[in-house]
Amino acid sequence: MASRIEPALIVLDIQLPAMDGHEVARRFKQQPETSDIPIVAVTSYAMNKDREQILASGCEGYIEKPINPASFASELERYLPASAAPNGHEP
């Protein structure tokens, strides 16, 4: 689906039922159609080791749960390519 719709950003939970988010991120990064799409993990895993594993799996960013609804969108905007950021500017 991501290769078909070409999103500007993928927000990925790490705790998924069938395949964990680490594997999902690795698969996205292995595919030429999706390898350039930034991935931001949103997870309750909060240890330094967890963050390192998330980034090593191919995610560009990491946001801990619980999220702050007031700042969540602006946190995600940091990972958008300049062309996809609001008003075409880098956040």
Rank of each mutant, 00 (worst) to 15 (best):
D20Y: 07
V42A: 00
L16F: 12
Q31G: 05
D20L: 08
G88H: 11
R4I: 15
L55G: 05
N48K: 12
I39E: 12
F72K: 06
Y45G: 04
L12F: 09
Y45F: 08
N48Q: 10
D13K: 03
E90Q: 12
I39C: 00
I67G: 00
I37S: 00
S57T: 02
I14H: 01
I54D: 00
V42L: 02
E77V: 11
Q31P: 01
I63Q: 03
T43N: 03
H89V: 14
H22W: 09
A2Y: 11
Q53K: 15
I67T: 14
V40C: 02
A18V: 12
P81C: 01
F72R: 08
L76D: 10
L55C: 06
T34S: 11
E23V: 11
E52H: 08
V40W: 03
L76E: 09
I63N: 07
R26H: 11
A2R: 03
G21P: 08
D13F: 10
L9I: 10
A25I: 06
C59K: 07
P66C: 06
N48H: 02
P66T: 06
A25K: 02
E75L: 14
A73R: 14
F28Q: 08
R78A: 12
S35I: 06
L9Q: 06
R27P: 14
R4W: 04
L16G: 13
A73H: 10
E33D: 12
A70E: 15
Q31Y: 00
A73D: 10
L76M: 07
D20E: 13
S35C: 01
R4T: 15
K29E: 10
Q53S: 11
E52R: 11
R26P: 13
L55A: 07
I37Y: 05
H89Q: 14
E64I: 15
V24W: 01
A41G: 05
F28L: 15
I63S: 04
Q30K: 15
S71E: 11
P69C: 04
R26L: 10
E60W: 07
S71N: 12
S57I: 03
Y45S: 08
